[in-house]
Design a protein around this nucleic acid. Structure first.
Lengths: 155, 155
DNA sequence: TGACGATATTCGTTACGACGACTATCCTTG
DNA sequence: CAAGGATAGTCGTCGTAACGAATATCGTCA
């Protein structure tokens, strides 16, 4: 019967596998949640990627990081980090200088202005994270985390 | 003790809430899985968004869709559909013509070439979807789907 | 020392997705 | 029928993320 309907609609994949349904649900959920984060950050003229870089740099404290370090802590490739940090430097949120011992590397460090921008944001982001999933009991969240980790094992 | 370490590293949010952990896991998993899909499609010179549009159009059969229809079935906004379909038209994968009754709307339909491109792809995509999550029993996938749906309820 | 491979970054390009603004067309309503 | 609002689509712009290629520098080893 389902096959009949599928043939008529010419949508042979309309009713997909459980695996596909899981895939689509992961994508939709990731999208819905990240939009809310982006929305909050937009009010402070930051994109999620920029906020992410600033947090990574702040996490390193006074110790500067190079592009590969930053890329390694994100999912991003080195080439993209350059331009991402370019924009942050242009706004004075990070400082960059070339390493004198190894002139190939460029050190990057968060600036005081960068800190001033993201420090007050932490609490808001943390609260948003919590509130987005506050309707779920901890036990379910724990299960969700475990299932997602397991899901990634195959990819 | 944990607070001590956090203070030293200046990473006050490094050890986040369970909600944040869930959020990050959703993002990472979505990313890991969609990369594999994109990889497969790249071999056929299609992006995920393009494949998505073509499947939507094929699903409509002979009946053409306008930009709002297409946008409504994706997460995408109307303005972006225009250019997305522009590229598909340039490659002859879709046909577009202006509606005569209401000259504001532009009908879009998948072309024979478009069908020929995606028809053989369906099986490969379906198999990839399955194989990416094949290591998880159906029961866990079902739980995952339910938890993700519940997670979205808050956003 | 000089050639060669490895490493770190930058540059060029394309596509996507978000924002807003603009145009064309239709529809209503006075 | 004309004015104004609604609708459908397009255009301009930016930032991100992917690809590959190019450049600069370093380290090694013959």
């Amino acid at each position: 019967m389902a096959g009949r309907i599928q043939a008529e609609l010419q949508q042979s994949r309309a009713i997909g596998s459980l695996e596909e349904e899981a895939y689509l649900n992961i994508q939709r959920t990731a999208n819905a949640l990240s939009q809310r984060i982006a929305e909050l950050l937009r009010g402070h003229d930051l994109t999620p990627a920029q906020y992410n870089v600033l947090r990574i740099l702040r996490g390193a404290g006074e110790r500067p990081l190079n592009a590969s370090d930053i890329a390694g802590r994100m999912i991003t490739r080195d080439p993209d980090v350059t331009r991402l940090v370019d924009r942050l430097e242009k706004r004075g949120l990070v400082e960059r200088w070339r390493c004198t011992e190894d002139r190939r590397v460029v050190w990057t460090r968060i600036s005081p202005a960068g800190r001033e921008l993201i420090d007050p944001l932490d609490q808001a982001i943390d609260e948003l994270h919590r509130s987005l999933l506050a309707h779920m009991p901890a036990e379910k969240l724990q299960t969700l985390v475990e299932l997602l980790e397991e899901a990634r094992d195959g990819a």
